[in-house]
Nucleic acid binder design. Structure first.
Lengths: 209, 209
DNA sequence: TAAATTTTGGAGTGAATATTCCAAAAAATA
DNA sequence: TATTTTTTGGAATATTCACTCCAAAATTTA
């Protein structure tokens, strides 16, 4: 084949290739969620995804590149599921439904693991600036979807005009993250419940009428 | 020397030994705070503390043991400084002084590093059960000192009897942890400010008179 | 069908890293 | 002072782990 300019051909992935690649990302995401990025070896991922070393490095230049994909994948997963609740916040009942959703996940997994994005954040921010950038975007997106939810409640007349949905959204996300960390450390759902309930109770003080 | 029962003599440390040991812990704590536990090698610690490998393993059986000491050290440091503010919460001004203290630390360090205990927690809970236990105790102690502070405000007549200082303390600690994480990720003090201010504003709703 | 491209197997490599070991220097104790 | 104990230096070891390499199988494209 003729390629005088030596332009790096971006080789297309076949359907089979796509599947293998996805399998690797999913396996890596699970392992890194359970035991952290540093402790997850390439060999671990190989075994879990049932692939060989050559496949690993065929699809990803290096471990760091795989980590980036894991971040994207977890962002999609986490924010995707949350958006189902957040895009429809028309009442305090809906807000509590979101809370229940979060709490129930923790109970189901015996309060292990914490937040898939939060734990990646804490492990990677200081040592991987690409990861920091990506995770920062993820949290902005998350914050944004909470903002939209609260603004919607405001527009629906559920909240009075004293409420600042932007501030409340950021405070709510912080409470969520801190609550999850404490719940993970204590292996007890109480912290995430109290953290969210307290913030929602505060939002209650802006309820109309 | 006579020791027929083969009882492991707990060898006492001389003053010089104590100093070396402390130097190792402080060096390790700084490195692990900056780059995480996994990324901090024994050699890193050796270089920073200006000691040799034999010294390292003379004072600590293994890396894990050093990690435990780092957790204790950071617990002492963090909760110690916070207690100066928390044991004296006699007014909302005092509560805001505590907030300012926290925020100013973040600003000083350019929002890098997050919470010394929170980051250890996130990295270690799932992979080191000794660490999990120790960190859990640390957070209970921290929570407790916030509780005491708020109870004091209640007894001082600053808060009315509707306030539940125990719940508020846990929610406050969660907001603090989540706020610090988001501030660290975003390199921006806004999240920790909003998180704490929102919680304090909520506590304000229990203000007497 | 023939040629090119993609996917896969699996052994091999080199660097990083925790830990061990021997012996000497320094300090404490008798 | 003599002896025991503690502290230190630094080389050696052994293992883990990210990453490479060669070639074959499978698949796509011409």
């Amino acid at each position: 084949m003729n390629n005088p300019l030596n332009i790096p051909k971006k080789q297309k992935l076949t359907k089979k290739g796509q599947e293998t690649r996805s399998r690797i990302i999913v396996a890596a995401a699970e392992l890194m969620y359970e035991q952290g990025v540093a402790r997850t070896t390439i060999e671990d991922v190989q075994n879990k995804a049932k692939i060989s070393a050559s496949q690993m490095y065929h699809y990803f230049k290096e471990k760091k590149e795989l980590v980036q994909e894991v971040i994207s994948y977890q962002t999609l997963r986490v924010i995707g599921t949350h958006k189902r609740y957040l895009s429809n916040l028309d009442s305090f009942e809906a807000l509590y439904a979101w809370r229940d959703f979060i709490v129930n996940i923790q109970i189901k997994r015996n309060c292990e693991g914490g937040c898939p994005l939060g734990s990646l954040a804490s492990e990677l921010v200081e040592i991987n600036s690409d990861a920091q950038q990506e995770i920062m975007s993820s949290f902005f997106e998350w914050e944004d979807s909470i903002k939209k939810g609260l603004r919607y409640m405001l527009n629906q007349g559920e909240l009075n005009s004293d409420a600042d949905p932007d501030k409340l959204a950021l405070a709510l996300l912080a409470a969520l993250q801190g609550g999850l960390l404490l719940t993970q450390v204590r292996r007890d759902p109480t912290p995430i419940i109290i953290a969210l309930d307290t913030m929602i109770e505060h939002i209650h003080s802006f309820k109309k009428i």
